[in-house]
């Protein structure tokens, strides 16, 4: 600690540090307690390990998959699909939002459709998508886009509309056209809200990818989950779910980091 700090401030910093440590402690405790309870319940026969698996079995199963490298294959496939879906969904959603911003009348016409489509359970269309698009990666991508694009459009468009009127008046007084207004003010000013919209998109993407894999795939974590369920290997199912949680948390953390950078860029 900086020796120049006053005693009072040092005490304050110590207290804060203690608080942070306590919070982290309880967070870790919850995870540990959860796994311990699960493990114990399975060992004492409170839960049937055949149906509920157990942490040790799930990890053992993962270890086996890790050794014969199939884990990398499946996790890799799913991660690649999610990354591609996220990228395509963000670009497509951003592009559509831009078009709606550019043509306000189109936006007004389409507004109720956006709202309705956004609230529809688009996953329900999954089986139809297979018929239309075929049973391959393109189906998975289509399901993902179906789930993520509309909510991205709505989020990004809201960001575009938040931009300060004064900035736009200023650019107009410089003689800026619509494209210049977008390039110089609307786009940079809405970067943080666009990134926030993308944060929601992360969750949507994973839903789309896993459902897509449930429906069509021969590989990937979604496939392992379905396969494990069919042959009653719950440790495979639970293990895959654990990996899935880790991957999606990682992707979310990445976007959250990007958001923090973006806010800094705007001086917030």
């Amino acid at each position: 600690m900086d020796p120049n700090l006053s005693e009072e401030h040092k005490a304050y910093l110590r207290k804060r540090k203690r608080e942070t440590r306590t919070v982290s402690f309880f967070r870790a405790l919850i995870v540990l307690a959860f796994f311990a309870a699960w493990e114990l319940a399975a060992r004492c026969g409170l839960l049937d390990p055949f149906i509920f698996s157990s942490p040790s079995r799930a990890f053992l199963c993962l270890w086996g998959l890790l050794k014969d490298r199939t884990l990398f294959l499946h996790a890799g496939v799913t991660l690649a699909e999610a990354a591609a879906g996220f990228f395509a969904g963000s670009v497509l959603g951003g592009l559509l939002a831009f078009l709606l911003w550019w043509f306000p009348r189109a936006e007004r016409v389409l507004d109720p459709y956006l709202v309705v489509i956004n609230s529809l359970p688009k996953i329900a269309l999954g089986p139809v998508i297979i018929v239309w698009v075929g049973s391959g990666y393109s189906s998975i991508l289509t399901v993902t886009l179906l789930v993520s694009v509309v909510c991205t459009v709505i989020g990004v468009l809201a960001g575009f509309r938040e931009v300060d009127r004064e900035k736009i008046t200023l650019l107009k007084s410089f003689g800026a056209g619509k494209g210049q207004i977008f390039f110089y003010a609307v786009f940079p000013a809405s970067i943080p809200s666009v990134v926030s919209a993308l944060k929601i998109n992360v969750g949507m993407t994973w839903v789309g990818v896993i459902v897509g894999e449930f429906l069509v795939s021969r590989s990937g974590l979604g496939y392992l989950i379905v396969y494990g369920g069919q042959v009653f290997r719950m440790d495979l199912v639970m293990g895959s779910v654990l990996i899935l949680s880790a991957l999606s948390a990682g992707m979310y953390a990445l976007v959250a980091f990007a958001e923090k950078k973006a806010r800094k860029f705007l001086g917030e």
Binding site: D164, E166, K167, L170, A185, P188, A189, F265, G267, E268
Partner: peptide
Amino acid sequence: QHDGLFPW
């Protein structure tokens, strides 16, 4: 009123 400078 608000200087209107672009923060980026």
